[in-house]
Amino acid sequence: MTVPAGGRIAQLVRHPIKSAGYEPVAEAVLTTGAAFPFDRVWAVAHAAARLTDPPTWAPKLQFLRGWGSADLMAVSCRSDAEAGQVTLSHPRRPTESFRPDDPADAARLIDWLRPLWPENRPEPARVIRVPGQALTDQDQPLVSINSASSLAELSARMGRDLSPHRFRGNIWVEGWPAMAELDLIGQEITLGQARLRVEEPIGRCRATGANPETGEQDADTMDALEGAYGHSDFGVFARVIRGGRIAVNDEVR
């Protein structure tokens, strides 16, 4: 399938701490063979995590994640990549700033997150960073691309407006037919100055049922996807094959 005409970047989002904060940005500079910039730089391991020393990439089950706590999905973020600082907000927590690479701030971050993590799960224990490796759910550097039209169609099927932040995507494209992105596997697309190759669909989990404004499970997105399309895929992963600047409103071709 050829790339649908008329697509534009509607939103760019990064998540400096895995599963703990989303941050819309106006632009980003993609690097060949790298994940989205300043995305999943840190992750918070729980007390039962099995990690190497020094840490390397590890599966998501070793970390705090939205599947385990809907409350985490309501964390929003502002960050300063150069300073290595993040400011986190939540409806039921005070807004605070952290430099996760600083041991004292890492301990404060864990304390800040602890009330948002279920008491019956292994407690937050350690902030992890792996230089040069994004702590995404995949052990390879991929960027996630989602369609605003697909979100609108799913919202209409469910009878409610769904926030894009339920899906923790990096790039949102408007102007494509709904779910057309799933037909682009193996195709190359150009966004702004960058070029990406679409690699695979994104299989979703129950974390998408959590409302990012309230931190409450209030929508059965998994059942809606299965009922409408016969699968739980939503969005696609792509690999950066030529780096460059991308920005909101850039054409996708």
Rank of each mutant, 00 (worst) to 15 (best):
V3N: 14
P4F: 03
A5E: 15
A10R: 07
V13T: 15
H15F: 10
S19P: 01
S19T: 05
A20Q: 01
G21D: 03
Y22R: 04
A26G: 14
E27M: 13
A35P: 02
F36Q: 06
D39Q: 04
R40E: 03
W42L: 00
A49D: 05
A49R: 02
L51V: 15
T52Y: 10
D53R: 11
T56N: 12
W57G: 01
P59V: 07
L64H: 04
R65H: 07
R65V: 03
G66Q: 00
G68T: 05
D71N: 10
A74R: 00
A74K: 03
A74M: 13
V75P: 06
S76I: 01
C77R: 06
D80A: 08
G84K: 03
S97T: 09
R99F: 00
P103D: 15
P103I: 10
L109Q: 06
L113N: 02
P115T: 01
R121K: 15
I128G: 04
G132I: 10
A134P: 00
Q138K: 11
Q140W: 09
P141C: 12
P141T: 08
S144V: 03
A148F: 00
S150C: 00
S150K: 10
L151K: 02
A156Q: 12
R157F: 13
G159T: 04
R166P: 01
N170L: 05
N170H: 05
I171E: 00
W172Q: 10
W172S: 09
V173S: 08
M179P: 08
E181M: 05
L182T: 03
G186W: 11
G186L: 07
G186F: 13
E200R: 15
E200I: 04
R204Y: 10
R206K: 13
G209H: 08
E213R: 15
E216I: 12
D220A: 01
T221A: 01
M222V: 11
A224C: 07
G227M: 03
G230R: 15
H231F: 05
F234Q: 05
G235R: 02
V236F: 12
G244N: 07
R245F: 02
V248S: 05
V248D: 09
V252L: 13
V252E: 04
